[in-house]
Design a protein around this nucleic acid. Structure first.
Length: 429
RNA sequence: GGCGGGAUGUCCGAGUGGUUGAAGGAGGCGGUCUUGAAAACCGUUUGGCGGGUAACUGCCACGGGGGUUCGAAUCCCUCUCCCGCCGCCA
């Protein structure tokens, strides 16, 4: 959510940002019209309320002195009637304002490349090299099947298409990866580990900006109006919803492992085969609450924290700065990390690191006091995957496959795998 | 799931229809005192939204929403959360 005052005073900046995002700028003017109407009505009704307050005091005084206040009470009945009807109008208008306000995306940062689609994203850097094979590398689907560590038939039997089922060393690999990533971020990068609920209420979803726009993309428990989290960003950012944080405590950095749930309605075809796009996946998420003036530096740090996961795993990847049309709704700037999957022969997105500036903070009411006694201000929030599991597993299996079909385990994971150095089909079920 | 109790400012806590935006305390900030600190004392300290160049000023907010009333922190309804007891259960 943007500050209505900011929109009022900088309408052109907001319009430009919307156009750069390849969106409609008309909502801004609609919003401004409503805002003006809203303020008119406020002035009118507040004048009436001032009268009512004054006269009600007078009535109280008269009654105390056992004098007759009947006439004043009658007058105030009418005034109250008017107040009620104007208040109803105010409520209507301000509801329109907030629902419009909720669908206007964050303003993109000036460093974000302007562009209309994926092709306009700008590659920032590449790390490592694509592995070279003396044989034709298999895809993770083939590897998973021959090694008996990944079984989509069982998954489909249990839950339907778009789910994964890991087995034996495959399942252990999932556990190893989450442990490895959490340890790296907590022990080396200084994040505090948290383990939140996987279901959250509607307020959380509004706070981080998933609602109202993406309601159909999420799994919802009707009975309680709870949502399965699409990312740990939602519960973790909402930890401090409605709070004023002591400025001394910033930055607050959290790392969380959670399962993530996405309906992915409408995506079919080869994108949905294998682990590339599944309804449930595991992810370690990094979330930061920072002082506004530091947020872009913190974004770079967050990005490099996430990159280090891939570096330690020895996986080839690149970092991309998303263009204006691709930066997500709540973000002002976003980097994607894409890992190379040799079997697929392409880069796969495994992390999005975003600066949301004060956009989520304003929605969720997350403020801090810059100094004691100072006025509370909105924090900046950031988050990034550190990283998402399934696609990293794709890259891992495809990168470390050997000619005999076995899979070498990267050094950093071996202690998490009980010392196992290779996965071979002997291990399969 | 059933019954009972509760939710007040940064925190604790008083307040059951009319100067209570809110006593009192703690904490924070400023000051007096002190070589310095502590203690003591004095003062100050909620947020949001409007209007005004400004000084200043209006409205709203006592968990959320709705209602009664000339007037609600205070009465009624409803929801959420917390605590206790019973039931159920990994």
């Amino acid at each position: 959510m943007l500050d209505i005052k900011f929109i009022r005073e900088n309408a052109e900046i907001v319009r430009k940002s919307l156009r750069d995002r390849m969106g409609e700028a008309g909502t801004v003017d609609e919003l401004l019209k409503l805002d003006m109407r809203h303020r008119q009505l406020l002035q009118e009704v507040e004048g009436l309320k001032a009268t009512r307050n004054r006269v009600s005091d007078e009535i109280g005084r008269l009654k105390k002195q056992s004098e007759d206040a009947g006439k004043l009470i009658d007058e105030m009945k009418t005034v109250s009637q008017n107040i009620r009807s104007i208040d109803a109008e105010v409520k209507g208008v301000s509801q329109q304002i907030s629902s419009l306000g909720l669908i206007i995306p964050n303003i993109v940062h000036s460093s974000v490349p302007v562009g209309g689609g994926e092709k306009d994203n700008v590659e920032i850097r590449k790390w490592g090299q694509a592995p070279v094979f003396k044989f034709k590398p298999l895809t993770h689907l083939e590897i998973g099947e021959t090694q008996g560590i990944l079984d989509f038939k069982v998954a489909a039997k249990l839950a339907g298409s778009g789910f994964a089922f890991f087995s034996g060393p495959g399942a252990r690999l999932v556990r190893a990866m989450t442990g490895f990533m959490l340890d790296l971020h907590t022990e080396k990068h200084g994040y505090r580990e948290v383990f939140p609920p996987f279901l959250v209420n509607r307020d959380c979803m509004l706070g981080t900006g998933q609602l109202p726009k993406l309601e159909k993309d999420m799994y919802r428990i009707d009975e309680e109006d709870l949502f399965l989290i699409p990312t740990a960003e939602v519960p973790v950012t909402n930890i401090h919803r409605g709070e004023i944080i002591d400025g001394e405590k910033l930055p607050l950095c959290y790392a969380a492992y959670t399962a993530c749930f996405r309906r992915e309605a409408g995506s079919y075809g080869k994108e949905t085969r294998g682990l590339t796009r599944v309804h449930q996946f595991d992810k370690v998420e990094l979330v930061k609450f920072v002082r506004p003036e530091t947020s872009y530096d913190e974004l770079e740090k967050l990005l490099s924290d996430a990159e280090e996961v891939l570096q330690k795993l020895g996986l080839h990847y690149r970092v991309v700065s998303l263009c204006t049309a691709e930066v997500s709704f709540a973000a002002a700037k976003c980097y994607d990390i894409e890992v190379w999957a040799p079997g697929e022969g392409k880069f796969l997105e495994v992390s999005s690191c975003s600066n949301f500036t004060d956009f989520q903070a304003r929605r969720a009411g997350i403020r801090y006091r810059p100094a004691s006694g100072a006025r509370a201000e909105y924090v900046h929030t950031l988050n990034g995957s550190g990283v998402a599991l399934p696609r990293v597993l794709i890259a891992l299996l495809e990168t470390y496959q050997q000619e005999d079909g076995s899979i070498l385990i990267p050094d950093v994971l071996r202690s998490y795998m009980g010392g196992l150095e290779t996965i071979t089909s002997r291990e399969s079920i």
